[in-house]
């Protein structure tokens, strides 16, 4: 995996947390939503979900759906909520600084 992919993965993690903060989702929902907006391979979301679970930031539960197999839902833990708030602030600060830097370059 290149540096670019590594970098994207870190940001994707933040996006997944952001989605889960709004409501509980099943894996495909998250993968579908993100791949529509960001250029990633469809498969990359599942390793991220697994990592978040092993770190205790999300939990899973099964829920029966009408006319289909039960789906595995992902839900943010209180630890995840806290981690998301911290990472979000950090990222926004970082993005703001980078934007400012790149825009300066236009005036040269």
């Amino acid at each position: 995996m290149g540096v670019n992919a590594q970098y994207k993965k870190g940001v994707l993690e933040l996006c997944v947390l952001s989605l889960l903060k709004r409501r509980d989702c099943y894996g495909y929902e998250i993968s579908d939503y993100l791949s529509r907006r960001i250029d990633i391979a469809d498969g990359t979301v599942y390793p991220i979900l697994r990592k978040l679970k092993s770190e205790g930031l999300v939990t899973t539960y099964m829920q029966e759906e009408s006319g289909g197999p039960p789906r595995k839902y992902y839900s943010l833990t209180s630890l995840g909520r806290e981690a998301y708030a911290a990472q979000r602030a950090e990222y926004l600060e970082f993005a703001r600084a980078v934007n400012a830097l790149l825009e300066e370059d236009e005036h040269d």
Binding site: M1, S35, A41, D42, G43, T44, Y46, P47, K51
Partner: peptide, 18 residues
Amino acid sequence: EIAAKLGSPEDLAAQFEG
């Protein structure tokens, strides 16, 4: 099409390794 969009299975397996 689905398999192509998912990415290579070996690459994905590597991402699960921690």
